[in-house]
Computed example of a mutant assay.
Amino acid sequence: MQDCSLFSEEIKAFTNTISEAINNKTEPIKSETEAEADKISRENPMETGIFFKIEVTWNEKPVSFDVPSVTVRDTPISFDVPTMTMRDKDIIFHLPECRMERRVVGRYPEFHGPRIVWRDIITEVPVCDMKEQRIVMGIPEIEMKRQDMILGIPVFDMQRVEIKMKYPEFKFVNVSVELKEKGNKLQTDTEEKIETSMSEVKSELIAQFTEKHTKLFDCYRSNILENMNTALPEIDATISGLNASISSMKEKNVPADNEFLVQSETRLKEMVAMRSEIEEKFKPALDALNESQKKSLEEFVQKFNLKVTEPVPV
Rank of each mutant, 00 (worst) to 15 (best):
V117N: 13
S78I: 11
Y108M: 03
K180I: 01
N59V: 13
F93I: 05
P96L: 01
W118L: 08
M130Y: 15
I91K: 05
M144Q: 10
D90R: 05
H94A: 13
E132W: 09
V117K: 14
T57M: 11
K61D: 03
F52V: 00
I122Q: 06
T123H: 08
N59K: 09
V56N: 09
T48D: 15
V177S: 15
M158P: 02
W118Y: 13
K61L: 08
M84S: 13
F51W: 12
E181D: 10
V127E: 09
G138F: 00
V70P: 04
I163C: 06
I135G: 01
C128P: 01
E124T: 04
C98Y: 01
I54N: 03
I77V: 15
T71E: 12
P62W: 00
R107N: 10
S78Q: 15
G113F: 12
R87N: 10
E162C: 08
P45V: 00
V125D: 07
I135W: 05
V105M: 04
T85A: 10
P96C: 00
E181Q: 09
V155D: 07
V104K: 12
F170N: 01
K89L: 03
D120Q: 08
R160W: 00
G138K: 12
D157S: 12
T71S: 15
G113V: 05
R73W: 06
E178F: 06
M46K: 13
D129Q: 13
N174S: 10
M46W: 10
